[in-house]
């Protein structure tokens, strides 16, 4: 009886020490799953998921938020998230229409220079000054849509990115065959 008690106590002690040591030694900084999720998100910072940016949404997913809230990422991102989180893929909340990469375009002759879009842009992709025409840096634009709403004169539109010779995807069937 005594032996058993002593033994169990000793065992508990030993394991306690081991666990404590392990907790110190192999301490995990931050939450690695959040980083992994964030790496999968498209970093548009568009907020369409309802969170202010991609990082907050990644944190929310890690805490059990649904994985289908990211329209810019499309179903590909959703599937990767499902894979990572070990949950069933679900259809996107938004329609998959946003699959084509789009960038904002300011119709410059209509722009009044109100700077509202500049303030709305989460990635500082719009340049311009008050009462002067603004323009979008197409290379930095994430196509998040956030600048469209604030524009008082509706001069911002989302244009699909055109293919050029360098980015052509070799879809031979897509070439229009002209009948001469």
């Amino acid at each position: 009886m005594l032996i058993a008690v002593v033994l169990l106590t000793l065992l508990a002690l030993v394991f306690g020490v081991v666990l404590g040591f392990a907790a110190e030694k192999f301490k995990v900084e931050g939450n690695p799953i959040v980083d992994q999720i964030e790496a999968l998100l498209p970093q548009t910072q568009c907020g369409q998921c309802g969170y202010p940016g991609c990082r907050p949404y990644a944190e929310a997913i890690a805490n059990g938020e649904k994985i289908n809230r990211c329209p810019p990422g499309g179903s590909a991102t959703m599937e990767k998230l499902a894979d990572l989180m070990g949950v069933e893929p679900e259809p996107l909340t938004a329609t998959a229409e946003t699959q084509v990469r789009k960038v904002a375009f300011i119709r410059e002759e209509e722009c009044i220079g109100c700077t509202k879009c500049i303030q709305a842009c989460p990635v500082d992709a719009i340049v311009g000054a008050g009462k002067l025409m603004h323009t979008v840096l197409a290379s930095a634009c994430t196509g998040c849509d956030l600048c469209v709403e604030p524009c008082p004169v509706d001069c911002i539109e989302m244009l699909p990115v055109k293919q050029d010779l360098r980015t052509w995807d070799w879809q031979l069937n897509a070439i229009p065959v002209k009948t001469l």
Binding site: L172, I175, V177, K178, T179, L180
Partner: peptide, 8 residues
Amino acid sequence: MAFKIASS
């Protein structure tokens, strides 16, 4: 005439 498109 229409020219045929094919992959090499």
